[in-house]
Design a protein around this nucleic acid. Structure first.
Length: 291
DNA sequence: ATCTGTCCCTGGACGC
DNA sequence: TGCGTCCAGGGACAGA
């Protein structure tokens, strides 16, 4: 479940394998809704281009090309962007692993989930974009062209202020947790960091958004940023599929306080962590600490 | 403008 | 061992 920290860790570690290299070959799976730009068009437009920069907005990655075009990528739920040299069991399903020898498991071969594969003129390692559930997206933007998905994004979570959150929640009657998940309000927060941030701020996820005071909004944004930064430092959260571009697991899954810890004792007060479904999504919180 | 429900997808966990 | 069922969830979209 790549959220801002996982996308940022991906950006930092894949950038050295993209920026400054010239694309010489593009392989894809067959067309599907994963491709906002058709595979044939991707190939046509990418081959021969240099990548000059790799940026991030919310959970989107944007690779800047030397001709002014941009490659927009979203990792969805299970997207993995990584080097051909990466080694990780997370790059192979359990059933696939079971039919391979230990030596074979160490060599990743592009499989049916590897929707985009870039080769480079320098003949160094290829870069793969793999996504089992295909909730990810890739699109080529022409020079100066934007995408409605980017246009709708709110302020990046690392740059948000409590003041902004306060203003944007005044008319919102739904649970604060659901507002945090809206990328049009603050971009980059997903289920894990919404729960973790709310825990750190001592705010119950079901709390009606408009009932938060200015002070609570400030505390909440500070808490979310603290959690996001700590996760980036630890390499992101490898709870199910996330793996860094070099094949390393993140470390934040072990630091998490409440997310996916239903029934376990609260790290602050020992009360059992509760699990609720809010807006069709699981939410974890401490019923005692989060008043 | 805001909110709710549904859908896309696949692998893994779990129960029988 | 194998099969069926449920769950995970980011985001687009339709309809209230």
């Amino acid at each position: 479940m790549p959220e801002l920290p996982e996308v940022e860790v991906t950006r930092r570690r894949i950038a050295p394998l993209l920026v400054g290299r010239r694309i010489s070959s593009v392989r894809t799976t067959r067309d599907s809704y994963f491709f906002l730009t058709k595979p044939a068009s991707l190939k046509r437009n990418l081959v021969g281009r240099d990548i000059v920069d790799l940026g991030r907005r919310g959970k989107y990655l944007l690779a800047q090309l030397d001709d002014g075009k941009r490659l927009m990528m979203h990792l969805g739920m299970t997207g993995q962007l990584f080097s051909q040299d990466a080694r990780s069991v997370r790059l192979l399903s359990a059933s696939r692993r079971s039919s391979l020898s230990p030596a074979e498991q160490l060599r990743f071969e592009a499989d049916e989930h590897t929707h985009l594969s870039l080769g480079f003129e320098d003949r160094g390692p290829r870069v793969f974009f793999r996504d089992v559930r295909k909730f990810g997206k890739v699109r080529l933007l022409r020079r100066g062209q934007s995408d409605p998905r980017l246009d709708k994004l709110g302020v990046d979570a690392l740059e948000a202020s409590g003041q902004q959150l306060f203003r944007l929640t005044r008319k919102r009657k739904i649970a604060i947790k659901n507002v945090l998940l809206e990328q049009s309000v603050i971009a980059g927060i997903g289920n894990i960091y919404a729960d973790e941030g709310l825990f750190l701020a001592g705010i119950r996820p079901t709390r009606r958004a408009s009932s938060l005071t200015r002070r609570s909004c400030e505390k909440l944004v500070e808490s979310i940023q603290e959690v996001l930064l700590r996760s980036i430092e630890s390499g992101g959260a490898s709870i199910s599929d996330f793996v860094a571009p070099d094949g390393r697991d993140g470390g934040y899954q072990d630091q998490r306080r409440v997310y996916a810890r239903g029934g376990e004792p609260c790290p602050r007060c020992d009360a059992p962590i509760r699990r609720l479904v809010i807006g069709q999504r699981a939410a974890y919180f401490c019923p005692r600490c989060q008043g």
